[in-house]
């Protein structure tokens, strides 16, 4: 038969990589400011938060699930971190609290979805509201300021002169999940559960635990993202993060993930998140109004999936 049918699953990642490179090329031609090294560092910095969320979202989507609550988790963990990061409190306390909140929220989502069998869409829509509510209650509805200098350094500091720690965290997380998804038995189980949960169960895989764990991962990473965002903006606001879940979903879909599960590569999450931030960075620099940016984002997303669908149809 046809040789190219074999590598079908990586088609969309490939297409998006090309689109990403074309975008970078065009933007570099249009604006010399875009092509500078420090702007690329900038882009990675701006990708980091959505990128970290996309990694967690990617894991959930690989199992065929969905998590609409990550934006709210960013808000809650960010507010709590900001409240705890005042004055001379050791920064480890807000850091662990934010991550802990993410973990607990993820555990809640995972238990409801996996063990009580409530559809993920419903569960996470519910926890989205619930967690957002907690963020408002805890903060009294207002932004929290007065974050300590030390805490600000978590995301704000640069190493090797120019490289922001924020970017380092992001790349470390991507690398860790590339490793987990590619190399570990657990990672493979995520794919198997997403590909066919019933077949995975018959094969002796503990499907419920795998499903629970991916929501935990999404929660933990959202907690980390919230903590980092608080450090980056030196404040924690209860509205922060609303809509972030959709950006994360957009990133993984652009990156070639199938919403029905089982399909998607680690580099897809990276490419998808980068496509989105290159787009807004480049268009900002060119002075294109944000309204048009929404337009272009929408076209790219639907276009990416279309190319993929058509490609698959043609090869079969």
């Amino acid at each position: 038969m046809k040789k190219n049918a074999v590598h079908l699953s990586s088609l969309r990642e490939f297409v998006m990589l090309i689109i990403l490179l074309i975008m970078v090329g065009i933007l570099s031609l249009l604006s010399p400011a875009f092509a500078r090294l420090n702007n690329f560092i900038n882009i990675f910095k701006q990708t980091a938060i959505n990128g970290i969320l996309a990694v967690g979202m990617g894991c959930v989507i690989l199992t065929g699930g969905f998590d609409l609550s990550v934006g709210s988790i960013v808000g809650l963990s960010g507010v709590v971190a900001a409240l705890l990061a005042q004055g001379n409190t050791p920064i480890i306390i807000p850091i662990l609290s934010a991550i802990g909140i993410g973990g607990v929220a993820g555990l809640l989502n995972g238990t409801l979805v996996s063990y009580l069998g409530i559809p993920a869409f419903v569960v996470t829509l519910g926890t989205q509201n619930f967690i957002r509510g907690l963020a408002y209650i805890i903060s009294g509805g207002r932004p929290v300021f007065g974050v300590s200098r030390a805490y600000e350094q978590i995301a704000g500091m640069n190493i090797f002169g120019q490289v922001p720690l924020l970017v380092v965290y992001y790349l470390v997380i991507v690398a860790a999940f590339a490793f987990i998804l590619q190399k570990t038995v657990y990672g493979r189980h995520i794919y198997l559960v997403g590909g066919n949960a019933e077949a995975a169960r018959v094969s002796g895989i503990n499907v419920k635990d795998v499903k629970l764990s991916v929501y935990m991962i999404a929660g933990l990473l959202a907690g980390i993202a919230g903590m980092l965002l608080t450090s980056r903006t030196v404040s924690g606001s209860p509205i922060t993060g609303s809509g972030y879940e959709l950006d994360a979903i957009a990133a993984v879909v652009i990156g070639g993930f199938s919403l029905s599960g089982g399909v998607g590569k680690w580099y897809g999450m990276l490419i998808g998140a980068l496509v989105l931030s290159v787009l807004s960075n480049g268009l900002d620099i060119l002075g294109v109004a944000s309204y048009y940016q929404y337009l272009i984002k929408g076209i790219i997303m639907v276009g990416a999936v279309y190319i993929d669908v058509r490609g698959r149809a043609r090869m079969q």
């Binding site: 493979r188 198997l192 590909g195 066919n196 019933e198 077949a199 995975a200 018959v202 094969s203 089982g262």
Partner: peptide, 24 residues
């Protein structure tokens, strides 16, 4: 199982990944 598509195979994965799926 009786129904290879519903409960036996991960259809969207490769032959290789299916073969190694049980005793990974």
């Amino acid at each position: 199982t009786e129904d290879r598509k519903a409960t036996g195979l991960n259809l969207i994965a490769s032959i290789k990944h299916n073969i190694t799926s049980v005793y990974l």
